[in-house]
């Protein structure tokens, strides 16, 4: 149980970064009229995924 919890706590920020932040950034860029759809998603995945990965490693978003 404890091991599962620790594992999930570790990977949840990465899941959140890819699963939520990436489309959030892409949709925010769409509202702002920036880039084309493929580029928006690529940027969203890079920023959201990267930030999530960092949060997974360090245990903090900010």
């Amino acid at each position: 149980m404890e091991a599962t919890l620790k594992y999930l706590t570790r990977i949840l920020p990465l899941v959140f970064g890819i699963g939520f932040l990436a489309p959030l950034f892409a949709q925010a860029m769409a509202v702002a009229g920036l880039l084309d759809p493929e580029q928006r998603l690529a940027v969203g995945l890079a920023v959201g995924g990267g930030w999530g990965l960092l949060a997974s490693i360090t245990g903090r978003w900010i």
Partner: peptide, 11 residues
């Protein structure tokens, strides 16, 4: 949150 985001409702 993820389901909403990937169906176009992230904001």
């Amino acid at each position: 949150l993820i389901a909403l985001a990937w169906t176009g409702h992230a904001l």
